[in-house]
Computed example of a mutant assay.
Amino acid sequence: MRALVCEAFGPIENLKVRDWQLPALKPNEVRLEVHAAGVNFPDGLMVQGKYQVKPAMPFVAGGECAGIIREVGESVKGFKVGDRVIAMPGLAAFAEVVNVDHKLLMPMPAELDFQQAAGFCITYATSYYAFKQRAQLKEGETLVVLGAAGGVGVTAIQLGKLMGARVIACASTDEKLAFCRDLGADETINYSRENLKDRIRELTDGKGADVIYDPVGGDFSEQAYRSIAWGGRYLVIGFAAGDIPSLPLNLPLLKAGDILGIYWGGWAARDPKANMQNFSELLGFVQQGRLQPLTTEVYDLSDFTRAFAAINERRAKGRVVLTMGQNQD
């Protein structure tokens, strides 16, 4: 079978699409025919050796995918051959076939196609955990989303609105901000030509933002924090800008503000029951028609460099997925 293989840490362009031999199926695993796999910013960091997890070489990256079960291990319960599922293998999703522990599977709702389902887990789970468990976002609060047109930013807009927040979307171009308004953002800020701190203060009548969602880092983090409301919560999601900011600690002191790290994967491993409850609620939103997962960029596995470039160059609006050539219906 074809897989996207990392043979040594280095540039994404060094990855190779080549034949890959799967290990024998374990009793607790299913063999999944992958139809699509979500591409996430940490995937690029991992193959470059810049992520906190460094797999042994060689390895196949990719943390989430969707497909059809083709074989089940002898101890697997609740799933059967032919089931359409969403999977969170953590690694090895960028392949035509992957072995996955059955505890890392969820039934795929009929409301989703494979491309939507493939990009559902990591970004929506991250944002929901950030808002529900960490920030405890409340109806009527003001939520500021940096990098709002990107993969996680889109989920923050959608879930923020679903949870009753007033959402201010921040991005670098008017085109991206128009996209955010179409998703439901109440207000927008172009931080390439507007002062982020001043505009947030203006749009909140001087109060500031109750919750700030920051997957970008870099130069805008301090500006954003200086606009936070008394008792506000600042969510550290990641550093897509490349630079990890340094924040003067007198700012959270003066604002009685919180700085909350969002490491969904670490939390999910420590509290799998609560994590699965979150997924149950998210899938419920989909089935109720309250949440429509958005995939805007789709590439074949062989075109992986363009898929990663769309994310790393911050051009993507919404989720990016790789397809494996199977029928996507």
Rank of each mutant, 00 (worst) to 15 (best):
A3N: 06
E7N: 09
F9R: 09
G10P: 03
P11T: 12
E13R: 11
N14K: 15
L15C: 08
K16Q: 08
R18P: 11
D19M: 11
A24T: 08
L25C: 04
L25I: 04
P27C: 08
E29D: 07
V30T: 12
H35G: 02
V39K: 02
F41P: 00
G44W: 02
V47P: 08
Q48D: 11
G49R: 01
K54P: 08
K54I: 06
G63E: 14
E64W: 03
E64V: 11
E64T: 13
A66Y: 06
I68V: 13
R70P: 07
G73Y: 11
G73A: 12
G73R: 00
G73N: 14
E74D: 10
V76T: 04
G78A: 05
G82W: 03
D83E: 03
R84W: 02
V85L: 08
M88S: 09
P89H: 06
G90R: 05
G90A: 09
L91D: 08
A93E: 05
F94G: 07
D101A: 04
D101M: 04
H102S: 00
L105T: 01
L105Q: 01
E111Y: 07
Q116S: 10
A117N: 10
A117M: 07
F120E: 02
A130D: 08
L137T: 08
L137A: 05
G140S: 06
G140T: 12
V144N: 06
V154P: 00
A156Y: 02
A156L: 05
I157D: 08
I157H: 02
G160M: 00
G164F: 00
G164S: 02
I168H: 06
A169H: 10
C170I: 11
A171S: 06
T173H: 10
D174P: 00
E175D: 14
D182N: 15
E187S: 14
R193V: 12
E194W: 08
R199C: 09
I200Q: 09
R201D: 12
T204M: 10
K207V: 14
A209E: 07
I212H: 00
D214F: 00
F220Q: 15
S221Q: 11
S221N: 07
Q223E: 15
Q223G: 12
Y234H: 03
V236I: 04
A240H: 10
A241C: 13
G242W: 09
P245Q: 06
S246C: 10
L247W: 03
L254I: 14
A256R: 15
D258W: 10
L260T: 03
Y263E: 14
G266H: 15
P272K: 06
F279I: 08
L282H: 07
L283C: 02
Q287C: 14
Q288M: 13
L291M: 05
L291A: 00
T296F: 05
V298R: 00
Y299G: 02
D300L: 10
L301V: 01
F304L: 02
T305Q: 15
A310C: 09
R315G: 15
R319K: 15
V321F: 01
L322S: 07
Q326I: 03
Q328P: 10
Q328R: 09
